[in-house]
């Protein structure tokens, strides 16, 4: 069965460009040629000189909304594209660009330019707080991941444009990780650089704060499998998003306390103490920061 040739337009807001490289990286699996053959790329600022916003079947937005400029770009993309993907964790949840959520724009400018008097004049307006794309425009599909693994990119496009059923499951990072989750007698909470990982046992069971069980797998779990605790760059699982009383810290503490000899409260306290790291990718999303139990500004001050 042949399909019409669909057009794709992309734009980057406040991000790092990694999502664009992820699209070019389809080439690693020999899929870039297929991508360029299957789809008509009408706008892609990193590769092409198209400056306007041509009509397209599908729009791909990467990056969060940090400035007035980003907001206008998101709107232009919505108007010019039939369907819109929030591509990558920044567009979907604010991502690392959203970690400015806990600071006012003045605090950020003061820190970067080392004093109020050094802030340059005539610069574009910054939003008071960074936010994900869906706070400005309607999004048809979320594809989190920092950046999403190529396998999920084609699946998303086929699903949205060709209406093929998606094969991506809403599973946590744990579902791909080969480590064995088991009850241990560990009673000390470890930092990433503490102790020695045994290479086989679940990092939670060993006392490391790993976010794998609460993070959507759009990466194929490279971190925990190498002994690096998941930092949640793929954004939260649906469980966390959908249930108002479930939050990263309580959920993680509960699981970890069942797997070790540590008390839940102690773990919750630890996570709050280093909240800025654990919530780095999601704090600017209302799905997280509107939860009644979420109080990151207070945790940071303590």
């Amino acid at each position: 069965m042949t399909h019409p040739r669909y057009s794709i337009s992309t734009d980057w807001l406040s991000g790092c460009g990694g999502c664009e490289v992820a699209i070019v990286d389809l080439d690693i699996e020999g899929k870039l040629a297929k991508f360029l053959n299957d789809y008509d790329l009408v706008r892609c600022p990193v590769l092409m000189d198209t400056k306007e916003y041509p009509k397209a079947n599908l729009g791909i937005i990467t990056g969060a909304i940090r400035s007035k400029h980003d907001r206008e770009s998101a709107k232009a993309m919505r108007e010019s594209c039939d369907k819109l993907i929030a591509f990558g964790t920044c567009a979907a949840y604010g991502g690392i660009s959203g970690a400015g959520y806990v600071h006012s724009k003045e605090e950020i400018l003061n820190a970067v330019f080392q004093g109020k008097e050094n802030i340059p004049k005539g610069i574009p307006e910054m939003e008071q707080s960074p936010k994900p794309a869906d706070e400005e425009v309607k999004i048809d599909l979320y594809l989190p991941g920092c950046p999403p693994h190529p396998a999920y990119i084609f699946d998303a496009l086929n699903n949205l444009l060709k209406e093929q059923p998606s094969t991506s499951r809403p599973m946590p990072v744990c579902s791909t990780c080969r480590r064995i989750m088991k009850k241990t007698e560990v009673s000390v909470l470890k930092k990433y650089l503490d102790g020695t990982d045994d290479g086989k046992t679940c990092l939670l069971s060993q006392g490391y704060l790993c976010l794998g069980s609460l993070t959507m797998d759009r990466c194929k779990a490279p971190c925990p499998q190498r002994g690096i605790p998941c930092i949640g760059c793929g954004g939260p699982t649906l469980q966390i998003i959908l249930e108002p009383n479930r939050d990263l810290r309580t959920e993680l503490a509960e699981r970890m306390s069942r797997l070790t000899n540590m008390e839940k409260e102690k773990i919750v306290h630890e996570i709050e103490a280093s909240a800025k790291t654990h919530y780095a990718y999601t704090m600017s999303s209302q799905m997280i920061n509107r939860k009644q139990t979420f109080n990151i500004k207070k945790w940071i001050q303590q």
Binding site: H69, L109, A111, V112
Partner: peptide
């Protein structure tokens, strides 16, 4: 035209 402010974002992280 944009600023994410990593210098500030990183403060207080592990």
């Amino acid at each position: 035209l944009e600023l994410r402010g990593f210098e500030k974002i990183m403060e207080g992280m592990e």
